[in-house]
């Protein structure tokens, strides 16, 4: 699984949007959910927070695996969602780096905001959550069989972990 951290917090996210925007929240329901950044619950919490702050969230989209272009394209073209995607001005993406880039490529006509960032490969267990075991070379972190918790990894890499709100 890909370990997904983030570089921005909620206040920084708001700097990328305005109240007139028609916002769609988009989340991968696989690695990003296991990294506790995305998934249904975190999408709903983010939508509530943005609406409370006066932003116009017009839709939430949960995609099973966010790094597969055919699945992303299907959402953009499906009769149930095609119209709402054509109306949106902003897509806030809760996914890994690959998922973000592939989503950005499909939705070329709107502003696509990256929240998540891949930092390596992880292992998930219900008891311990996601742990980073095989970091990307660019992080400078050594591999760890026991793994780094998301909080430890974020601290070591100067990033943030967990949900935006």
């Amino acid at each position: 699984m890909i370990v997904v951290l983030r570089s921005m917090d909620y206040e920084q996210l708001k700097e990328h949007i305005v109240e007139a925007d028609r916002i769609i929240l988009w989340s991968c329901n696989d690695c990003t959910k296991y990294s506790n950044l995305g998934g249904r619950k975190n999408l709903e919490s983010l939508a509530k927070a943005l609406e409370k702050d006066g932003y116009n969230v017009i839709h939430q989209e949960l995609i099973g695996v966010g790094c597969q272009p055919p699945l992303i394209r299907l959402r953009s073209q499906h009769p149930a969602t095609k119209e709402i995607f054509s109306e949106a001005t902003v897509l806030i993406v809760l996914a890994c780096t690959d998922g973000f880039l592939k989503t950005q490529k499909v939705f070329k006509k709107m502003r696509v905001i990256q929240v998540g960032e891949s930092v390596g490969l992880g292992v998930y267990s219900k008891a311990e959550g996601m742990k980073l075991v095989i970091p990307l070379e660019e992080t400078g972190l050594p591999p760890s069989i026991e793994g780094y918790t998301l909080e430890e990894a974020a601290k070591k890499l100067g990033k943030k972990s967990g949900p935006l709100v």
Binding site: L101, I134, L136, E138
Partner: peptide
Amino acid sequence: TLGVPAQSDMLKVVAP
């Protein structure tokens, strides 16, 4: 394990 894809790039991982 070769790495983690990022569109057309490959982000290399550290081998244990």
